[in-house]
Computed example of a mutant assay.
Amino acid sequence: MQNISQSLSLAPLYRHRVFQSTRKVDCHAQVANELSEHDLFWKGDDVDTVLFKAAIRQLQIFMLKYGAEVIVRPRLFNGFALVHMTLSGTAEIEADGQKVCIPQGKTALIAPKRNLRLWWQAGSEQLILKVPMALFDELSAQGQSGPANMPSLFLLPEHAAPHWDLLIQSLLRVLALPGQNDGHTEWISHFERGAAQFLLSQLTSTYTAGPTAAGIAADESADGLIGAGKLQRLDMLEKYIRTRLCAPLALADLANAAGVSVRALNALCHQHHGVAPMDLLRNIRLDAARERLLTHPGANITDTAFEFGFGHLGRFSAYYRERFGELPKQTRGCTR
């Protein structure tokens, strides 16, 4: 069955092109002006940036494509959050120590407190919804529950994706109205509030659920760690992994490095990275291998796989393609 996100009708948005350019300086300046100040690092010269933007009432919708592979480091957002939806390709987002991969059809809410880094695969297209924090505050004042503090990074659950896709399609259809005059004002505001309310409801069910049996079990498995204590354990774990990228490591080794039980480590990794500890280990090794192939055009793929802990070349290639949307040889080919 086709994912709804693959069949979104973007025609109403495509009537509002801000710019299209193959010049890196122009692209950087235009996107910064429309979205947020940021540092932009290009990997390759295949620049074909296009930006579409449409304002509804309180919300703004963007479609952005760079063409080339890029790393973006935005400044902290001032009074807004972004909802990031990958239309094609793959993106990776790291906010305040949390990292998630966002392949085609996945959606994440981003509201960084300290730092943010985004990696976009070459040729990928991203649909971005800019939501003012004032709208979330307004809904909270009206009784819509939500977490006390907006999380830095929240990956929309799989079961919620079809409902979110339908909400986005409704917002896109609003753009097709002949004129957003007073006769449509309340109706349009209803769709905007509905989208924000849906996000708050997903945050509520994830972060503020009552003490159910599952919730109590999760608390126990986290060994009572809270706040900075969790981040410190995760930092210890990542430092341990990065100094042993080619070493054979077991789950018990990772738990010992973080100073927690295996059950607690599993809960922490799922909460902050969305994956199990051994999957996190593999992802960090894949990231390191990709960096090697990007920075060393002549690197041998087999040697690179072994250097970063992958003893089977076929599985390495399969994992690599699953994470980055291309084979290792394609990455190396782009750098030549």
Rank of each mutant, 00 (worst) to 15 (best):
F136V: 12
N115H: 14
P103Q: 02
R75C: 03
S145T: 13
V83M: 01
L155G: 10
P132G: 07
Q126N: 13
N149E: 15
Q144S: 07
P151S: 13
I93V: 13
E125G: 04
G97M: 02
A122L: 05
S140P: 00
Q98C: 12
P103R: 01
V70H: 00
W120N: 15
G143L: 14
K106N: 09
V70L: 01
P151H: 11
L127E: 02
L139R: 15
C101G: 01
S140G: 11
V70F: 05
E125K: 10
Y66A: 04
A122I: 01
Q121N: 10
A95Q: 04
V131F: 08
G143K: 12
P147I: 04
P103L: 06
G89D: 00
A111G: 03
L127N: 02
A108C: 12
T86S: 13
W119T: 12
A148S: 15
L153F: 08
G123N: 09
M133Q: 15
G123C: 10
G146A: 12
G89F: 03
P151C: 12
V83G: 01
G105P: 13
E94Y: 07
F136Y: 14
T107W: 07
K99Y: 02
G89C: 04
V70Q: 04
P132S: 08
S152P: 06
A81V: 03
P147R: 08
Q98T: 12
R75Y: 09
Q104E: 14
C101M: 02
K113M: 03
F80C: 08
E92W: 00
P112R: 04
V83P: 02
S152W: 11
P132C: 09
P147W: 07
V72T: 06
K65T: 10
G89R: 02
L127Y: 05
L127W: 02
